[in-house]
Nucleic acid binder design. Structure first.
Length: 705
DNA sequence: TAAATCAAACTTTTT
DNA sequence: GTTTGATTTA
C-alpha cells in the first residue's frame, strides 16, 4: 500500500476505469467536447437517471484531461447538492488518476449556489465596485423590515387608500429583479391589485435601493443584481469571464432570467458551458424560475448547443415509473421523456383514509412495519405540499416515540432568539445595518422602539457609526444594561472567530431568560448555532453562509441527529428535490393540497403543481404510497379548529395514473376532470440595462427609473 | 411620552 | 408561535 502511495501519480495506470460503469447516454454527456473550450452542452436528465453522477463524472473527466479545478465553476441549486457533487467528483477523479483513496481529492473551490458564489465574488471585488468589504447580507425578514421602514419614512404607511404591505412590496421587487421585467409589467401580470401604485412603488423601490447602499446591506436579489451589474462593466466582465474555463449548472430548469443573463455574460459563446436540467421537474416559478431558460438554451448559440437526454432510470422500479410517466402524460412538456427501468418492483399504492388523523396513524403503522422488515427510518420519507401538512403526523410520531427530522417549513433562522443573536453579530460587523441595530437595541432592558429609533437615527447621521454607538446616551433606566451591551460588542469585535461567539452568547442569555418563558428550549438552538460557528473561518463567512444556506431542520423535537442514530425523514416536496428514499409516503394527495388551492389561479400554476406531484413520486425507489384523506382541515382557523372540507382525490390522479396504482382502503370517489392544457406563458424579453457603468449605486438605482 | 402588557389575526413552496 | 394593534402603567 505504501509503495503504491509513493509512486509518482502520473505514472500510475488507473486501477480501474471510473467511467466504465456509465451507460451510453451518460458517457456521451461526460465525454462531450474537448477538455479545453468544449462547445455548449445541455444534458436533459430525467428524474433518477444518474444526473449527479454524470455531472460529477464530467467534472472528473475534464480535470483528468487537463482542466484546472481552480478555474471550474459549479453552480448548484443548494449547498448540499454542491457538496455531494464535489465529493463524488473527487472520488471519481482519484480513481481516474490512479490515486490512493487516502490522498486528499482535488477540491473544486468554486462550487455553490448562484447566491453563494455571488457573495464570494462580491466580497472579493468589493473595493473595485464601491462596496464595503464589511457588507452584510439581509435575509428575507430583514429585507422586509428594512423595506417596511423605508415605506414608513416615505409616508406610504399613511396613504388615503391602502398601500401594498411590506411583504408584497418586497415580492414585487424580487419578481422584477429576478424575472428581468419592468415594474409595470410585473404589476400588470402578477400584482394587478397594486397596479394603481406604480409611480409610488417606483419611488419606494428606488429609496429602498439607496438605503441598502447607504447601509451597505444587500438582499438576496442584490447579490445576483450586482453580479450582473459587474458583468456590464467591460473590464470587470473580462476579468470574471477569464477566470473560469468551465461553468457547469445543475437544475437549470429552476434558474431565473437574471441567472441566465449572468451565465450568458460569463460565457457569451457558450464555450465551456454545460447545463443540466429537466423541464418536468420545474417547481420554482413562484420564485421567478423560468423553465424556458432550459428550452431556449440550445438556440442561444451558433451552432446550437448539443442536447443529450438521459432516460434510463436507476432509482425506481418500472411500476413506479409508469405511474410517474402517467402523471405527466396529461401535460407533456417540450422535452417530454419517458422514464424506464428494466427493474421490476412493487406497484405504488393509493391509500384511502378517513381523515388526517387516520392518515397519520396509517403512516406511523406503515413506517414501523417497514422498519421491522429491515428498512431503517432514515431510508423512509414522508413528503407533503406545505410545512404544516405534517402537523398531525408529527403529533402521532411523538406519541409513539418515533424520532424524525423535518426539512423545510419552520426555519431555524426565523426563530426570534436565533435572529436576535445573529442581529448582534451583524451589527458588530456592520454598525450601519439599521435593522440589525434596531433589533438588538430593543433587547436592552429599558430601551423600546422609541429609544432604538433614536439610536439608529444617531448612527445614521454619524460619520463613524461605531463611535456614535459608544457615545449614545440611553434613557436613565437603561444605563447599566446598555453599558453591558457595549462591553459585549467591544469583546465580540476584538476576539477572533469563532471565539467571538462566546461573548455574544454570554450577553444574550440573560436577555433570553428575561424575555422568554421557554428559555431552555431556545437555548438548545443557540448551542446548535454555536456548534455551527466552527465550520466557518471568519465571522463574515459564517453570517453570509448561514443567511444563504440555513440549517434545514428545526431543532425542537426534531432530535439532534447525533443523539438519535435513526430518524424518519419529513420534508416538503420542494426540499426533497434531488433526493431519493427506498420508501416514500406522499400526504394529502387531494384537490386543495395538490394542487394547493393557493395556486389554483392560472393554468400555468396548476401545471407546476402537477410537476410537484411528479417530483414527489419520482423520489421513491422501491415503495410509493399516495395518501388520500377524504376529509381534511381547512386553513385560516385556530390550530384545533374543526372546519373540514370533503376533498376529492387530486385531479392529477387521472384514470391512466389510477390504472397503475393499487387501491388500499375504501375506494375514493372518481377524480375530477383533468385540467385544460396550459397555454404557454406570455413572451418576455431580457431587459438590457443601459450601457456599462462603474458606479454600482447608479446602476442599481437606474433599475427603477 | 415611552414601555410593558394583553388580545387577536395570520401561516405555500425558498435562495 | 409570531406579529400586530390597543390598552394600561410608570
Amino acid at each position: 500500500m505504501s509503495a503504491r502511495a509513493l509512486a509518482p501519480v502520473r505514472r500510475r495506470p488507473p486501477a480501474e476505469d471510473p467511467f466504465a460503469t456509465l451507460n451510453d447516454e451518460q458517457r456521451a454527456a461526460v465525454f462531450h467536447g474537448a477538455a479545453q473550450a468544449a462547445p455548449p452542452l445541455l444534458i436533459d436528465a430525467g428524474a433518477g437517471t444518474g444526473k449527479t453522477l454524470t455531472l460529477a463524472a464530467r467534472v472528473a473527466r475534464l480535470v483528468r484531461d487537463g482542466a484546472d479545478p481552480q478555474r471550474l465553476l459549479l453552480l448548484t441549486f443548494s449547498r448540499r447538492a454542491a457538496q455531494a457533487m464535489q465529493q463524488r467528483a473527487g472520488r471519481l477523479l482519484q480513481r481516474a488518476l490512479g490515486q490512493p483513496a487516502t490522498a486528499a481529492p482535488p477540491q473544486q473551490p468554486w462550487a455553490g449556489t448562484f447566491h453563494g458564489v455571488a457573495a464570494r465574488l462580491l466580497r472579493e471585488y468589493a473595493p473595485r465596485i464601491g462596496l464595503s468589504e464589511q457588507f452584510t447580507i439581509a435575509d428575507r425578514a430583514d429585507s422586509e423590515d428594512l423595506l417596511g421602514w423605508v415605506r414608513d419614512a416615505q409616508g406610504f404607511g399613511r396613504t388615503h387608500r391602502r398601500f401594498p404591505l411590506k411583504g408584497t412590496c418586497l415580492a414585487i421587487h424580487s419578481r422584477a429583479v429576478n424575472a428581468c421585467e419592468p415594474l409595470a409589467e410585473v404589476l400588470a401580470t402578477r400584482f394587478p391589485w397594486c397596479a394603481g401604485w406604480e409611480a409610488e412603488l417606483k419611488t419606494l423601490l428606488r429609496a429602498y435601493t439607496a438605503e441598502k447602499l447607504r447601509q451597505q446591506v444587500l438582499d438576496y436579489d442584490d447579490l445576483l443584481l450586482v453580479w450582473h451589474a459587474m458583468l456590464e462593466v467591460p473590464a470587470l466582465a473580462a476579468a470574471l469571464s477569464a477566470r473560469f474555463d468551465h461553468v457547469l449548472v445543475d437544475e437549470y430548469q429552476d434558474t431565473n432570467r437574471l441567472q441566465a443573463a449572468i451565465l450568458y455574460r460569463l460565457k457569451p459563446d457558450g464555450r465551456g458551458l454545460t447545463v443540466v436540467g429537466d423541464d418536468a421537474q420545474a417547481i420554482y416559478s413562484f420564485r421567478a424560475a423560468e423553465p424556458r431558460n432550459l428550452r431556449e438554451f440550445p438556440g442561444r448559440f451558433e451552432p446550437p448547443a448539443e442536447v443529450l437526454p438521459l432516460q434510463r432510470n436507476y432509482r425506481s422500479g418500472d411500476e413506479i415509473l409508469r405511474a410517474c410517466n402517467a402523471v405527466l402524460a396529461a401535460a407533456p412538456g417540450p422535452f417530454a421523456k419517458t422514464l424506464w427501468s428494466p427493474r421490476s418492483g412493487a406497484r405504488p399504492q393509493l391509500v384511502a383514509v378517513a381523515d388526517e388523523g387516520a392518515q397519520a396513524a396509517w403512516v406511523a403503522d406503515a413506517v414501523l412495519a417497514q422498519r421491522e422488515a429491515g428498512i431503517a427510518l432514515k431510508r423512509q420519507a414522508v413528503l407533503f405540499r406545505t410545512g404544516h401538512h405534517s402537523a398531525a403526523l408529527e403529533l402521532e410520531l411523538m406519541r409513539r416515540d418515533i424520532p424524525y427530522l423535518k426539512f423545510g417549513g419552520l426555519k431555524f433562522l426565523e426563530a426570534a432568539h436565533v435572529k436576535d443573536l445573529l442581529a448582534l453579530l451583524r451589527w458588530v460587523q456592520n454598525p450601519r445595518a439599521r435593522i440589525a441595530g434596531f433589533r438588538v437595541a430593543q433587547l436592552v432592558e429599558g430601551i423600546g422602539a422609541a429609544g432604538a429609533r433614536r439610536l439608529c437615527d444617531a448612527l445614521d447621521a454619524a460619520a463613524d457609526p461605531a463611535a456614535a454607538r459608544q457615545a449614545f446616551v440611553p434613557p436613565p433606566a437603561a444605563r447599566a444594561p446598555w453599558a453591558a451591551l457595549c462591553g459585549a460588542i467591544a469583546q465580540i469585535a476584538a476576539a477572533p472567530w469563532p471565539a467571538a461567539f462566546e461573548p455574544a452568547l454570554r450577553w444574550y442569555l440573560p436577555q433570553l431568560e428575561r424575555l422568554h418563558d421557554d428559555a431552555a428550549v431556545r437555548r438548545a438552538d443557540l448551542e446548535l448555532l454555536q456548534r455551527l460557528t466552527g465550520g466557518h473561518r471568519t465571522r463574515e463567512a459564517f453570517l453570509a453562509e448561514l443567511t444563504l444556506d440555513p440549517p434545514e431542520a428545526c431543532s425542537d423535537e426534531a432530535a439532534d441527529p447525533q443523539l438519535d442514530e435513526d430518524y424518519l425523514i419529513l420534508s416538503t416536496i420542494h426540499s426533497a428535490k434531488g433526493l431519493e428514499w427506498p420508501v416514500v409516503y406522499v400526504l394529502n394527495v387531494v384537490d386543495g393540497c395538490i394542487p394547493s388551492d393557493m395556486a389554483a389561479g392560472s393554468a400555468a400554476e396548476i401545471e407546476e403543481e402537477r410537476r410537484l406531484l411528479y417530483v414527489a413520486m419520482t423520489r421513491a425507489m422501491h415503495r410509493l404510497h399516495l395518501l388520500v384523506p377524504q376529509r381534511f382541515h381547512v386553513g385560516g382557523q385556530a390550530a384545533l379548529g374543526d372546519r373540514h372540507v370533503w376533498a376529492g382525490p387530486s385531479r392529477f390522479l387521472t384514470p391512466a395514473v389510477m390504472d397503475g396504482l393499487d387501491a388500499v382502503g375504501p375506494l375514493p370517489a372518481s377524480p375530477g376532470p383533468a385540467s385544460a392544457k396550459s397555454p404557454g406563458p406570455p413572451e418576455t424579453r431580457i431587459e438590457t440595462p443601459a450601457g456599462p457603468v462603474v458606479d454600482l449605486g447608479a446602476a442599481l438605482r437606474a433599475r427603477w427609473d
